[in-house]
Structure formats: C-alpha cells, structure tokens
Design a protein around this nucleic acid. Structure first.
Lengths: 147, 147
DNA sequence: TATTGTTATACTCTATAACTATA
DNA sequence: TATAGTTATAGAGTATAACAATA
C-alpha cells in the first residue's frame, strides 16, 4: 500500500497552472512576448533597474534578462542610461512608449481576467495572490547557479 | 490619478510563479524533461489515455502532447496499444519502467518541496493547492484553438 | 467531410560557456 | 581576481500548417 504523497496534488496543480500562464500570454500583443512584458512591468514597478536586478526579480540567468531587455530597448520601451556608480553597468528606465505599451498590456490582461474570474470576489483574488506570493517567497532565489 | 488595477498583483504573481516551476523542473532527472514527466504522471493518474485527452488535460495543442508522448515511448515509459473502438487512435499505458521513473520523480520533487516548504502545515499546502485548482478551473480550456 | 494523430517549421524561453569591459 | 553584462549555442516548450489514416 503506497502512502499518500503530501505534495502530489500541489505538484500537479503547479504543472496545470502553466496552461493559465500560456492563456494569459496569448492575450498579449504580437510585438510583446511575455519576457519583454515582464521586463517593462518590473521597470515600471521598481523604477530604475540594472540587468542583474531584473535577473533576480525574474528568477532567471542574466543572459536571459539581458535578451529580454535588449528586445524592450529595440522596441523603444526601455532606455539604457549610464550608471554613474559603475561603468560596467547601465541603468534601465521606462520610456513614454514603454508606459503606453504597458497600459495596453494591462488593458488586455484585465479584460481577460475579468472574463475568466467574473465570479471571483475581491477577497478571493487577494487570497489567491497572497498564497502565490508566499509560495514564491518560499523558494527564494531558485536560479540555476545562485544558491 | 490612476485607479488601482484589480488584477495587477495577481498578474505579477503568476509571472513570478514561473520561477518556482523552473526550480521544480531543475530537480527532474536529465532524461526526463517536464513535458515527459507530465505525460507519465497523467497516464498513471488517469489510467489508459488517448493523445487527445492528454492534450486536454495539459492544456496544449495535440501536436505538443504527441511529441511529449513520443519521448516517453522512446524511453520505454509508455506503450501505445491499439484502440479497439477507433483505429485512428491509440491507447497509452504506463509501463513498469514508467512506473519506476515516476517513483523517482516523486522522490525528487518531494525532497525539494519538503526542504522549501519546511515550515508549511498540511493545511497551508491544501489551501494553496485548492486555490491553484480553482484558478486553473476558472480558465477552462485555454488552448489556442479550442474555445 | 470531420476527426485523430504525426511531422515540419518557426518562435520563445532558458541555461551554459566564452567573451569584453570594468571594479 | 571578481563582477556586470553580452552573445553564441543548444535544448525544451509551444503553435501553426500540412499531411495521412480512419470515422
């Protein structure tokens, strides 16, 4: 007789939530893939950022955040400014176009979630959000080479 | 003055949870990528399955589940049996080797989660799992071409 | 005609490793 | 030497479209 696995259902739901993530990604405009959207959202939320900090916040290797940022810069949504404290580094800042694009992303995602979560109360949404936040925090820095 | 976006924090947490998913994927054995792991877990859980049903359960296009299944078949973890009711289709069944591999995945994931969620109670884990399940269900079939 | 599944193609995300410039 | 960032490469996931076989 197998003993029930304490984490089995959780593991399954984490896998299943990928479908939600893909569904949300599908509502983004064609010129703004999810990685790029993540970058401009973080720069708006946190203000000026460096690549390394974005790497921490997204939980990915710096080579990855560097690419996402390069895409955002190519589109004119983020600009790279010199870092007066460290000439190896550059400060990333949201442009006016980036702010406009982010507003579009918010409109699209809000429309989608409002439809899918029509019967959810504010409290439901807050509870889910808080749970996800705690879950994420429990994992700490789970990048490949950063204990 | 912008009005606060009801879904802003939720959107951010869904993005952030990708880091958790990657962390969990990193604990899998090298010969079993997450898509393949998902397939064998579903076949164990649901018993005999067809490709189309796996596609529904994973929320991906059938071309994707077909590839994941092909990988699992190549490794000897799943076998394709003829479907007596429909000769276009084939029944997928977990092999003994697949069952062993799944036991290994469970060991690895359990070890990881036990470490990361050391201070979570059973009730905490159940609440998170239930929330994720409800969230996933709210999205219904969110595959690209399946309303 | 419609459906089940496969395959080819293309794109995104990600990590590793090698590299440049600077600390 | 160590660190910030970039780039090349490779592997995984995914969707689209075209296809074969069967319903």
């Amino acid at each position: 007789m197998d003993e029930p696995n304490r984490y089995e259902n959780l593991t399954r739901q984490v896998s299943a939530i990928s479908a939600v993530r893909r569904g949300m990604a599908r509502s983004l405009p064609a010129d703004c893939p999810p990685g790029t959207a993540g970058v401009i959202a973080l720069v708006q939320r946190h203000g000026d950022l460096r690549i390394g900090r974005i790497s921490e916040l997204m939980g990915v290797d710096m080579s990855v955040s560097s690419r996402h940022v390069a895409h955002a810069v190519e589109r004119g949504w983020v600009e790279r400014l010199p870092d007066p404290d460290d000439r190896r580094s550059r400060i990333l800042r949201l442009t006016a176009e980036g702010s406009d694009k982010l507003a579009e992303l918010d409109r699209r995602l809000t429309a989608m979630l409002a439809q899918k979560l029509a019967d959810w109360s504010d409290d439901d949404i807050e509870q889910l959000t808080a749970m996800l936040s705690r879950f994420r925090d429990a994992f700490g820095d789970c990048r490949a080479h950063h204990a």
